[in-house]
Simulated assay, not measured.
Amino acid sequence: MESVQKVDQELSIVENGTQQQSQQTNPGELKIDIFKKLRGGFFLVLGYLLSPLCWWNDLIFNLPIAYGFGYVCSLFSANLLVPCSIAGYWISNVIGIVMMQFGSQDIFQKEPKERNLKKEIFSGLISSTVYTLVIVALIQLKILDAPDLFSNG
C-alpha cells in the first residue's frame, strides 16, 4: 500500500512539473519560434536553389547571377568577363551552401546556440571548393563532357 502511495505522489509531482513547464511557454516565445522556423525555411530553400546540390538551378539562378557579376567586372576591363563569371558562379554556390547552413540551424536546432560566422563561411568555401575540384577532375578524366567554350576553330 505504501508503494502505491509513493507512486501516486510521484505522479502528482510529475504532473505539476509538466503544468509549470507548459505555463512558462508564453505566446510571445511561440511567435518568435514560428518566425525563426519560417526564416530558416526561407533560407534553406533559397540556399538549396543557389547551391550545387540542386541540379537544375544553374540555368535559372546561378548562370544569370554569374554572368551579371562578370558583366559588371567587364565594365572595368573586357578581359574580366569570363574569369569573373566563373568567380561569380562559385560565389553564388558558396552563398547557397552558407544559407542552407543558416536555415537548417534555425529549423532543426532546439536551443539557441551562438553562431560562428567565420566557421560557417569557411565550411561553405571548403565544400564548394571540393565540389568544384570533383567536377574539374571528372571533366579532365573525360567522364563528363564540357562544352568547347574557348575553341577558335
Score class of each variant (00 low, 15 high):
Glu111Ile: 00
Ile13Ala: 15
Leu38Asn: 08
Val136Cys: 13
Leu11Asn: 13
Gln20Pro: 07
Glu10Gly: 08
Ile139Thr: 08
Ala87Tyr: 05
Thr129Arg: 02
Lys142Cys: 07
Pro64Trp: 11
Lys36Pro: 00
Ile91Pro: 00
Ile121Phe: 09
Asn26Met: 11
Ile91Tyr: 04
Ile86Ala: 09
Gln23Asn: 13
Asp8His: 12
Thr25Ala: 14
Leu138Gln: 01
Gln5Leu: 12
Asn57Met: 10
Asp145Val: 11
Pro112Ser: 14
Lys142Trp: 11
Tyr89Val: 11
Ile95Ser: 12
Ala87Asp: 03
Tyr67Val: 13
Ser92Ala: 15
Ile143Ser: 11
Trp55Ser: 13
Ile34Pro: 07
Gly153Gln: 12
Cys54Pro: 00
Arg39Cys: 09
Val82Asn: 05
Gly153Thr: 10
Val4Asp: 05
Leu144Lys: 04
Cys73Gln: 08
Gly47Asn: 00
Gln20Ser: 14
Glu29Val: 06
Gln5Asp: 10
Asn16Tyr: 02
Gly124Trp: 01
Ile143Asp: 13
Phe150Val: 03
Tyr89Glu: 13
Ile32Arg: 06
Val98Lys: 06
Asn26Lys: 11
Ser123Met: 09
Leu30Ser: 15
Gly47His: 00
Cys54Tyr: 00
Pro52Leu: 00
Leu138Val: 02
Val72Pro: 01
Ala66Gly: 03
Ala87Gly: 08
Ile34His: 11
Gly88Pro: 10
Gln20Cys: 10
Leu50Ile: 09
Phe102His: 10
Met1Thr: 01
Phe42Ile: 04
Leu117His: 08
Asn57Tyr: 05
Ile60Pro: 01
Gly41Thr: 04
Gly28Gln: 04
Gly153Asn: 11
